[in-house]
């Protein structure tokens, strides 16, 4: 089997599992909507207009929601010893990484296609065409970084005693500097560039993070999954 075929086989298995059970989608969808509602009540006592904090709310919701999905993508592999089965097949380890990453990415994107318009409706009163396109782009870049490092760290935590308890502890500090960039960029986008700053430098840093996270994940995955 060629690497491409192996990739599609693993990805197809994950997607099929999700389409049939809808576990991850249902839980992450409900979770992100609840998070947005809670954010509203957490901030509304002091703020009439929530637009200045909207970018932060969006990304905190995305970050915490992604934790649920990332945990799920490995914990069930571990429960049924599926991972051992997968490792026994003659599949290159990096292919497993890429397929798992693609699966997580697709889950996150599908979720955002539904949740982000709701978010825009709740807090921004709708978005114009150009801003919506840029928001979609930064979301996609953010998702890439989240899934790149998240897939690696989720594999590590699923193989420890703490299982899903460990992932947030490893994942959140690694993601903090990345979050600074995506939130700053999204914030400038939402505030309509009134901050008068050069947004491209954030974008370059986001892309730099993406490249580092993806390369590190790709290079180090072999060590992690072999253990």
């Amino acid at each position: 089997m060629s690497a491409t075929k192996q990739f599609w086989a693993i990805l197809r298995k994950d997607l099929l599992l999700e389409i049939r059970s809808k576990d991850v989608f249902t839980s992450t969808f409900l979770f992100s909507i609840m998070a947005l509602v809670i954010f509203h009540f957490a901030f509304s006592p002091n703020l009439k207009d929530l637009t200045p904090v909207a970018a932060g709310m969006l990304w905190v919701a995305v970050l915490f929601t992604s934790l649920l999905g990332l945990n799920r993508s490995f914990v069930h592999e571990k429960d049924e010893q599926c991972l051992d089965g997968l490792l026994l097949t003659p599949v290159d380890r990096p292919v497993i990484f890429l397929a798992k990453l693609a699966g997580n990415l697709i889950f996150l994107i599908v979720l955002q296609v539904i949740v982000v318009p709701i978010f825009a409706l709740f807090f921004l009163g709708g978005l114009t065409g150009a801003a919506a396109l840029k928001l979609a782009m930064v979301l996609l870049l953010g998702d890439l970084g989240i899934c790149g490092v998240g897939t690696l760290l989720a594999t590590i935590s699923a193989n420890t005693r703490a299982r899903d308890l460990l992932l947030p502890i490893l994942y959140l500090p690694v993601m903090t500097p990345f979050m600074m960039q995506v939130v700053s960029y999204t914030n400038a986008l939402i505030m309509g560039g009134t901050a008068a700053v050069d947004m491209s430098s954030w974008l370059y840093l986001i892309i730099a993070f993406d490249i580092i996270f993806l390369l590190a994940g790709y290079a180090l995955y072999d060590f992690v999954i072999g253990e």
């Binding site: 590590i156 500097p177 600074m180 180090l220 060590f223």
Partner: peptide
């Protein structure tokens, strides 16, 4: 192995995070 992998990720994160905080 896990500690080494995480240690490397953490160390990669630090210089970029310094750069980002400066920028902001």
């Amino acid at each position: 192995t896990f500690a080494a992998v995480f240690g490397i990720i953490a160390a990669l994160d630090v210089p970029v995070s310094f750069l980002s905080t400066r920028l902001i």
